[in-house]
Amino acid sequence: MNEVALLLAATIASGTPLALAGLGLLLNERAGVLNLGAEGMMLVAAIAGFATAFATGSDMLAFAAGAAAGGGMALVFGVLVIGLNTNQYATGLALSIFGGGFSAFVGAGYVGQRLSDRAQWALPLLSDIPVLGPALFRQHPLAWIALLLCVAIALMLYRTRAGLILRAIGESPESAHALGYPVRTLRLLAVVAGGALCGLAGAFLSVVYAPMWVEGLVAGRGWIALALTAFATWRPARVLLGAYLFGGLTMVQFWMQTAGVPIASYWLAMLPYVATIVVLAVISRNPTWIRLNMPASLGKAYHPGH
C-alpha cells in the first residue's frame, strides 16, 4: 500500500467512531434532547468493551457490552432529564464527569494492556483496485456498518412515519402530544438509542482503533461528535462527511509528525480541537441558518399537563 492509500484508510478508521457517536447524538437532538454526556458514555463503553474483549476474546461481545454500557448510561440520563425534568446541561455534564471517573476506576487494572490488532474485511475484487481499493475496501466491518447506519437513519428520518414522529417531538413536542404521541417515552427511546451508538463508538476506539486502554482514551471525541451534529446542521450524511474530515485531520497530524515536519508535535496535537472551534465559529456565524436547521425544542424540557 502506498502512502496515500494508507492515509485514506486511516482517515476512515479514525472517522468511524466520530461518525457512530455523531449519528447517535443526531438521533438524540432530532428528538429534542441535548446529551452533553457523550464523552462519559464513550469512556465507560470503551472500558466495558475493552474488558469484555480482554476476557472473552470476542469482538461481538465487546461491541455488545459497549453499546449496553452506553445505552445504560443514557437511560440514567434520560430518566433524570425526561422523567424528573433536571437541567439537561448539568445532567449531561454529570454524566461526563462520572464517566471519566468510573472508567478510570474500572480501567485502573487494564492500563498498559494491549489487544491484538483486529482483522479487517476485504471486499473481493473492489479491494484489489490500486490505491483506492486497499484504502476504502479493507476496513473493519464497523466502518461499513457506520456507513449503512447513516443511510438507514437518513431513510428513517425522511422517508418513514417513525422518522416524521421523531422529528415532530424535537420540533414541536406540544403538537406531537396533542396528536396523541407519547413524547416522553419516545424521547427516552431516542436517548437510549443514541447512547448505545455512542457506546459502540467507544468500544470501537478501545477494541479496534487503539487497541489498548489508557485513562481518558476518548480524548474529547465525544465533545467533537457533539460539535459535529451542529456542523452537519443535524443531517446524517453531513455527520458522516464531517466525521471523515475530522478523521482525516487527525491522520494528517500523525502523518506530519512521522514525516518529520518541523513543527512540535504539541501544536499538531491541538489541531482537531482548534479545528472544531474554527468550524463551530464559521457555521454559527449565520444565526438564521442555524435557527432554520436546529430542532426547535432542542434542550428544552417537555412535561405535558403542567
Binding site: 504539541y266 472551534i277 465559529a281
Partner: peptide, 29 residues
C-alpha cells in the same frame, strides 16, 4: 467567539481545555 460568531460556549470552552493542556505540554517538554 460567542459574541462575534455565536459559537456555542460549552463546546468552545471545553475544546480550549485540550488546547491549553497541549500548550503547557509544549512549554515544559
Amino acid at each position: 467567539l460567542r459574541d462575534r460568531c455565536n459559537a456555542n460556549e460549552i463546546l468552545v470552552s471545553l475544546m480550549l481545555v485540550y488546547v491549553a493542556q497541549q500548550l503547557l505540554n509544549y512549554l515544559v517538554f
